[in-house]
């Protein structure tokens, strides 16, 4: 590849080429606002969160209970068979300690996102949430944690009705 081509195309710019307007450019901010329908399964999930409960679904054919709920089993492609109330505690499957937000600005306090296997669901089945009331250095995979709910009056039917999960004990 290198023998034939002396100089590969591609003009790299610096951020200052934009701020000092050394190159011409245009800017646009789309108004990308959405209303995503919760749907049947997540609609029920949110309604139960408002009541302070975590609900999953069970497929009798595949003998598994999963959360977040869905109306179909993606393994056997049949409708799910039943709703199942799960516990509001579980085990940390994996976690991170995150120091930046999505635009790469530093966070003052790190966030601890985790996949939490929910008790009552099949082994290895978890949801994404945050850990709290814990020293980041103390977090371990396998740690038992439980949901810290917002007061009933503040719950709106959202995943954030659970503030975070905290270690049991």
């Amino acid at each position: 590849m290198t023998a034939k081509i002396k100089e590969f195309p591609g003009v790299g710019l610096r951020e200052s080429d934009f701020t000092e307007r050394k190159v011409l450019f245009t800017e646009w901010k789309p108004d990308a606002r959405y209303a995503w329908d919760a749907g049947v399964a997540i609609g029920r999930y949110l309604a139960e969160l408002k009541e302070g409960r975590i609900i999953g679904v069970r497929c009798h054919h595949c003998r598994r209970t999963v959360v977040p709920p869905r109306i179909f089993c993606e393994w056997c492609f049949r409708p799910m068979d039943e709703w199942v109330y799960l516990e509001d505690h579980g085990v940390v499957n994996t976690f991170s300690i995150c120091y930046v937000q999505w635009d790469m600005e530093r966070l003052e306090e790190p966030l601890i996102p985790a996949v939490i296997e929910i008790a009552g669901a099949s082994k290895g089945v978890g949801i994404l949430h945050l850990l709290g009331e814990v020293d980041p250095r103390e977090v371990k995979i396998g740690m038992k944690v439980k949901a810290v709910w917002k007061p009933a009056a503040e719950r709106i039917g959202a995943i954030t009705d659970i503030r975070y999960f905290k270690p049991i004990n």
Partner: peptide, 30 residues
């Protein structure tokens, strides 16, 4: 379950509001 449980009252239907936080900066090119 999919066929038996339907949202049949509008008030039970809910949507989650959000946005995609992007803006574009287009170079004019060569």
């Amino acid at each position: 379950m999919a066929l038996l449980e339907k949202v049949d009252k509008n008030i039970e239907a809910r949507a989650w509001q959000g946005e995609i936080p992007i803006q574009s900066r287009y170079t004019c090119g060569l």
